[in-house]
Design a protein around this nucleic acid. Structure first.
Lengths: 169, 169
DNA sequence: ACTCGTTGTTTGTATAAACAACTATACAGG
DNA sequence: CCTGTATAGTTGTTTATACAAACAACGAGT
């Protein structure tokens, strides 16, 4: 195997990636919980609905986008439904299928939550990277992600493990 | 707020970071489960014990290093104990305390698992980045992690959220 | 020694997760 | 049509997680 960096550098880089992701996730989690009483997962579901014209998506599509299992999504939507943020709508053309659809309350919540989230991301990352550095980071990470997702099968990942959900977060 | 990149670039970068970390985590998880019947979490606990002279660590230390809650670590060590990989040893100087210590079987397992893991990391990342690119990525991620962990309190993180566990993987 | 407050770890309880089994619907072939 | 098979979602069961309470042991001050 051709190595372009030492074993230790590699392990450290991977460790840093995990720590950075975990740190960011926790920061956003806290804020969402404190300000909106929303779990990261709920927000992830809601933001995908909010970004879809009509505010509705098939359950299976939503499951793939959020990296949730079908049963996980069913229960996540159950909870959101109990909170009055999401409704189910049976698909007219395929009566097996169901749409998850934002309620007016859910839409209204996200109309406020999304700009806040964007501002929060900017706040957390402000003054940390130059524009050029940020572009470099994005480019390197994109290559890593694409590499993992393109060749995922070689490393034992199933297709649904490699669903890509851009802009998520 | 001074912005050095557009909102969308920022969100995309964050999304890429999450997807990269999730992808890597899944790849390692599959391999560890398939070849060693070990969860990522178990491996994380074991690797820290294996890297400690004597192969033992206080429960609280281990919890901090693995980002597990104390109760989570208790249960994790319970499972490892049932598998015969870890034992508990009461601390002589402070009888409240307990050490988690690798059993011979656990030590032997890790003697084989760690080199395999390093090889796997190299395999997954081989031919993806140049040495220079990898150094750049590590440097940018380090700044991000340090930024998050230094200023974590501002974003609502508690001290134990920001324990640093280098080389983890 | 006795009490008070603190610390390290474990346990009780509720919430959430994954996996597999199930229901209902769709579709394809005879 | 009728049957077999695949697909969309849901539900049952088991397992893991976090939070808080319990417990045991330490240390300081009296």
């Amino acid at each position: 195997m051709q190595r372009t960096a030492s074993d230790d550098e590699r392990l450290t880089t991977v460790g840093l990636l995990f720590e950075s992701a975990a740190g960011l996730r926790r920061v956003f989690e806290r804020r969402l919980e404190a300000e909106r009483s929303l779990s990261n997962q709920s927000f992830d579901v809601l933001i995908r609905l909010a970004r879809t014209p009509g505010g509705e998506l098939r359950m299976s599509e939503l499951a793939a986008q959020t990296s949730l299992t079908p049963s996980g999504l069913t229960r996540s939507v159950d909870r959101l439904n109990q909170q009055g943020l999401v409704d189910r709508r049976t698909c007219p053309e395929d009566r097996r299928g169901a749409f998850a659809v934002l309620t007016p309350a859910g839409q209204e919540l996200m109309d406020r939550a999304i700009p806040d989230h964007v501002a929060h991301v900017n706040e957390v990352l402000s003054d940390l990277f130059t524009s050029e550095e940020e572009a470099t980071l994005a480019s390197l990470l994109r290559r890593l992600r694409d590499h993992l997702y393109d060749r995922g099968a070689e490393w034992g990942l199933t297709p649904e493990d490699t669903e890509i959900c851009d802009g998520g977060g």
